[in-house]
């Protein structure tokens, strides 16, 4: 109940499709059962095709997202190129492990397309940076159990972009409806080779 991971609530999910990936989050910010804000996005963009989702303690969501904005901007200035999703994932991992004995209470999710091959890339982490490479989907947040169930039943390989949007949206929306700490609308990103689509889902406002 008073775990730092479930004070503020929130959910995030990423999925692989055919030559595309999707990442989505809910918009709730709460204090235990009380909802404080219904406009608190948890997915952040760090490059044309690099996205990071962060669930967990809201203060650490903000701190960690700002930290990676700094680190990725420094990377781009130093190397005169955008960071690749796999490289970014390893940066997330090493940055979190740096705080091994006083961790940020977040469960990150990375989604993107490899700039060289266009190959979809997703992975998830625990709060100290252990990477979970997945071929299908990654879930995180207080609705992760529900998301696992939804993804296991809805996801199938090689979904085209439009179908992937429908799948990830239904998975998230129906998962957060069974979680008291998540919901209140959603952001969904569909990442394709030369197009990124962001959609705002209203969702149930209760």
């Amino acid at each position: 109940m008073s775990s730092p991971f479930s004070i503020n609530g929130g959910a995030c999910v990423a999925m692989v499709g055919k030559d595309c990936v999707a990442i989505a989050c809910d918009l709730r910010l709460g204090l235990q059962a009380l909802t404080v804000s219904n406009n608190f996005p948890k997915v952040f963009q760090y490059g044309e095709h690099v996205f990071l989702g962060l669930t967990g303690l809201a203060t650490d969501v903000a701190t960690v997202s700002d930290l990676f904005r700094y680190k990725v901007n420094m990377y781009r200035l130093r190397e005169e190129r955008a960071i690749a999703p796999r490289t970014f994932a390893n940066l997330v991992s090493s940055s979190l492990y740096e705080r091994r004995f006083g961790p940020y209470f977040v469960s990150p999710v990375v989604a993107g397309l490899d700039p060289k091959t266009g190959e979809p890339f997703i992975c998830g982490f625990d709060s100290i940076g252990c990477i979970d490479f997945a071929k299908d989907f990654i879930v995180s947040g207080t609705a992760s159990d529900q998301l696992f169930g939804m993804c296991e039943s809805l996801w199938e390989p090689n979904l085209p972009a439009e179908d992937l949007f429908e799948t990830i949206s239904q998975a998230l929306l129906n998962a957060v409806d069974r979680d008291a700490l998540s919901g209140w609308g959603a952001h969904v990103y569909i990442i394709e080779k030369d197009k990124v689509t962001k959609r705002l889902l209203k969702g149930r406002q209760d």
Partner: peptide, 22 residues
């Protein structure tokens, strides 16, 4: 802007702190 002691920050149209929230 609403800020709690954990440094959670939210921009809101209206806000309260403590029992007043409920």
């Amino acid at each position: 802007y609403w800020l709690d002691y954990l440094a959670s920050l939210a921009s809101l149209p209206y806000a309260a702190h403590g029992y007043a929230q409920y």
